[in-house]
């Protein structure tokens, strides 16, 4: 059964100046072409916070979804400033970048952001991504002006209208979530993260997966608490929270070390944070349209008594953010 997302909240790609979140890629792990995923889409993670064609372009992650966004920018946008916020450099969050058209056009200024990590710089990682023998077009072919920013603070004042906040997530090798405040609008982008109960991630594992039943040390527990607190702050009173819901609870128990979250967990966080809308995101490549419809229906029923509205991210559509009440 097909479920319509509440019509007034979603629209097809348009250039009107309403503030919205546009979903260019909604999958986790690997792109999944095919008719089974035709409705929700098969491209990997890429979300745009859209405020108008004359404003700087704000993008979260650079999965294959960013390729189509690149064409869209080239064809329609009037502003040459592009800001790309990277959660982490796993393939599904950067693999579209080598095909992002504005990189090959000298009129653009492109800024990349990620959380500073001591082990590797974002610039090195991205340049390494597009080197032979894995990719033929190195960064020397890029024509745009490129800037790399490694965030040391949890807060970045991007321009007078826009502030970005960031916090750590629970993911192998680390990832960071974002909150964007634009005028009176707020949205949160939380992917990839595991829940905060079975295991603290970040360390390397070799061989068999770590035992999820093993007791957490008090240090691990307090580290997880700290991550949870940071995530709650990013989601606090947010108009829309985009959250990693790749797993069911039983997936999480089987693969706690893969660093992905569940529908229940996302729901719990958003309720506690008093967010207004929750958007399921980073869909499992194994979950087809029908299964996603069912999940959405199930959790809408569960949420029906609360004021939290639930959606699932659909490629090539936008979630319109409600006009904030002026006080």
């Amino acid at each position: 059964m097909a479920i319509d997302q509440t019509e007034s909240n979603f629209e097809k790609l348009t250039l009107n100046s309403r503030v919205k979140l546009t979903f260019w890629g909604v999958r986790g792990s690997i792109p999944v072409p095919g008719t089974e995923t035709g409705k929700y889409g098969g491209n990997t993670s890429c979300v745009q916070f859209f405020t108008g064609v004359n404003d700087p372009v704000l993008i979260f992650d650079a999965g294959t979804g960013i390729i189509k966004l690149g064409e869209h920018i080239n064809n329609n946008y009037k502003n040459n400033e592009i800001h790309i916020f990277i959660t982490h450099t796993h393939w599904d969050h950067i693999q579209g970048l080598p095909f992002f058209a504005p990189l090959f056009n000298n009129k653009y200024k492109i800024h990349f952001y990620s959380k500073n990590r001591s082990s590797s710089s974002l610039q090195d990682t991205i340049f390494k991504l597009i080197e032979e023998p894995q990719f033929p077009l190195s960064h020397q072919k890029w024509k745009a002006q490129i800037f790399f920013h490694e965030l040391n603070e949890n807060r970045l004042n991007l321009n007078p209208n826009t502030t970005i906040f960031t916090a750590d997530l629970n993911h192998p090798w680390g990832a960071n979530g974002y909150r964007i405040e634009y005028k009176n609008y707020t949205a949160s982008y939380i992917t990839d993260t595991a829940p905060f109960d079975l295991m603290l991630l970040g360390k390397e594992f070799i061989g068999s997966p770590p035992d999820p039943q093993s007791k957490l040390s008090s240090q691990e527990k307090s580290a997880l608490k700290k991550i949870e607190k940071g995530v709650l702050e990013l989601c606090c009173n947010s108009d829309a929270v985009i959250y990693d819901t790749m797993f069911t609870r039983s997936d999480y128990i089987t693969f706690p070390h893969w660093g992905h979250s569940t529908f229940e967990h996302a729901f719990g966080i958003c309720k506690e944070a008093k967010s207004r809308k929750l958007v399921f995101f980073h869909h499992s490549p194994r979950r087809n349209d029908h299964e996603l419809d069912e999940m959405l229906q199930k959790y809408r029923q569960i949420a029906s008594k609360s004021s939290l509205e639930i959606f699932a991210a659909v490629e090539n559509t936008s979630l319109i953010l409600d006009e904030p009440e002026t006080t």
Partner: peptide, 16 residues
């Protein structure tokens, strides 16, 4: 070649 292309435009010949 190059990169996977999911989407309705490529559903006949395939995007993998």
């Amino acid at each position: 070649g190059f990169v996977p292309v999911p989407g309705r435009d490529t559903s006949v010949y395939g995007g993998n």
